[in-house]
């Protein structure tokens, strides 16, 4: 396998061909903020938090889905990127209905973490206050679309790891939502094995265990990666 060499924030890195900038950055010890990226499943570039600047390329590129090339010169933390990242997080907050104070994920939410990471203290965009609903028809879990950021992690874990493919994106644009089955109540989707992987995958309080009250959602953030490693690399410990 051939190797590519590049620099990230002036740090030289060598990594195998086909790797993403995000993987190369990890190798170089550079942290890039992410939200829709989840170890163990494929990447889709949905959240735009991982945007980076590459010299001689006139647009910002999402690190999680951009492959490295030879002699690439990458910058991950320029003032321009900081501004765009902050804007991306602000837009996510303005898009849904996030009332952290009463949310199950309060204090254990990757969107909150992202807001802190990018230094967002308020959003400069008007809130949309969309009319979204809560589906608690499943016997164990619930989904509150108000808190969904459409990262599609639930879709990917359910499809790629559990193999049940309960979730899909329905509609488009501002009407997008995560649909279970054929846009049925979750409790009626026979394909669901009630494995709970989507609960662990969901970065926010959108998917939760029923009965959990505010700030009570517990997530095992590393569990999915462990499951994948166990299956693919036969690593049974962590």
């Amino acid at each position: 396998m051939s190797v590519r060499t590049l620099t990230i924030n002036n740090i030289p890195v060598a990594i195998e061909e086909g790797a993403t900038i995000l993987e190369a950055a990890k190798e170089a010890g550079v942290t890039i903020p992410t939200l829709c990226h989840l170890e163990g499943v494929s990447d889709v570039g949905a959240c735009r938090l991982c945007l980076v600047e590459v010299e001689n390329i006139n647009k910002l590129l999402p690190a999680c889905v951009t492959q490295v090339t030879e002699e690439m010169v990458v910058h991950t933390n320029t003032p321009k990127l900081q501004e765009y990242r902050r804007m991306a997080v602000e837009l996510i907050f303005a898009e849904g209905n996030h009332v952290c104070a009463i949310c199950v994920a309060n204090g254990n939410c990757e969107l909150q973490d992202a807001a802190i990471q990018v230094g967002m203290d308020h959003t400069r965009f008007p809130y949309r206050f969309p009319d979204r609903h809560v589906d608690v028809s499943h016997s164990q879990f619930g989904i509150d679309h108000n808190r969904c950021i459409l990262c599609t992690r639930c879709i990917r874990v359910c499809n790629e790891i559990e193999g049940a493919h309960v979730w899909d994106v329905a509609q488009r644009g501002e009407n997008c939502y995560i649909a279970s089955g054929l846009s049925q109540p979750w409790g009626e989707v026979e394909a669901c094995t009630s494995c709970g992987k989507c609960v662990d995958a969901c970065p926010t309080g959108a998917i939760f265990r029923k009965g959990t009250t505010s700030a009570e959602k517990q997530r095992d953030r590393a569990k999915l990666e462990f499951v994948v490693n166990a299956r693919e690399k036969q690593e049974w410990t962590r």
Partner: peptide, 14 residues
């Protein structure tokens, strides 16, 4: 209205 009843403690406490 429309919220899970388990959230009522958190909502009304506010």
């Amino acid at each position: 209205e429309g919220r899970p009843f388990t959230e009522m403690a958190g909502i009304t406490a506010r």
